[in-house]
């Protein structure tokens, strides 16, 4: 089976966000970058299929600024076979539609059986690209999958419904899955993997660009929460807490 995993580099989840002078984006200077956690879960799922069936080819694709070579090498060190880096100039902020278009062009050339995306990239927190990609490819799409396995010409995928029930689907291939956290943690790249990654193919392509369908007018820090108070210590404080919740907050 041939699997494409779409990965995005995003600020680490404990980054302190500072707004850039342009007032519409974050100041990247002190940001530490990581692979978006859900994309790591997607890659881990693909690598597990490869563990079972070594004939599986896992290709990671990213639309990103030139610096993202580092994160793509990390994916190769984890066990992906090759990487495709669609290089942007790093400046323009892409919307979900044009991102999906750039990814779908590469995916059509590769013609894989399965495409995996994260359920959302933890930068703009949109959760759109995977589904848009599926519609551009004309393939079925199952979202927020927490576990999946290859069944020859289909995959069996588990998904949790809003009400907490587990649903098991059979998804015919080719298809797009968007992946959420499941029971397994993404593997770490070991030294052997890191050495091997240096020799694995990392293909650079140029981005054909595209006009964003949304304009970012401004970015602001969120309203500060007004400082709270310690109601008291231990069980003796409970009555006062309940009173405040009822009378002041009107929350119960």
């Amino acid at each position: 089976m041939k699997i494409v995993v779409c990965v995005k580099r995003v600020p680490s989840t404990d980054t302190r966000v500072k707004i850039a002078p342009d007032g519409t984006s974050i100041d990247p200077s002190s940001v530490e970058w990581i692979i978006s956690p859900y994309d790591e879960f997607a890659l881990e799922g693909a690598l597990q299929i490869k563990d079972e069936d070594p004939d599986t080819e896992v290709i990671v694709v990213s639309l990103a600024s030139p610096e993202a070579t580092k994160e793509l090498r990390t994916c190769l060190a984890m066990g992906a076979d090759r990487a495709i880096h669609i290089q942007t100039d790093g400046g323009s902020d892409r919307d979900a539609q044009t991102t999906a278009t750039a990814l779908s062009q590469v995916i059509q050339e590769e013609n894989p059986h399965l495409v995996l995306c994260g359920k959302m990239a933890v930068d703009k927190d949109q959760g759109q690209v995977g589904i848009l990609l599926a519609y551009q490819l004309g393939w079925p799409c199952l979202t927020e999958v927490c576990q999946f396995a290859s069944k020859g010409d289909a995959v069996e995928a588990k998904r949790e419904s809003g009400s907490g029930a587990m649903e098991i689907y059979e998804v015919p291939l080719p298809a797009v899955l968007t992946v959420t956290k499941g029971d397994t943690e993404p593997r770490y790249a070991n030294l052997k993997g890191i050495m091997a990654a240096k020799k694995k193919p990392l293909e650079e392509k140029t981005d054909s660009g595209g006009d964003s369908s949304l304009t970012v007018r401004s970015m602001e820090m969120p309203a500060e929460r007004s400082p709270g108070r310690i109601v008291g210590e231990g069980p003796d404080a409970v009555d006062e807490l309940i009173r405040l919740l009822r009378e002041e907050a009107k929350a119960i």
């Binding site: 302190r16 966000v17 930068d123 927190d125 949304l214 304009t215 820090m221 969120p222």
Partner: peptide, 14 residues
């Protein structure tokens, strides 16, 4: 909200 609520953006559809 973006960046898990660490910032807010205002966007307009074109």
């Amino acid at each position: 909200p973006v960046y898990a609520g660490k910032a807010m953006i205002t966007v307009a559809g074109k």
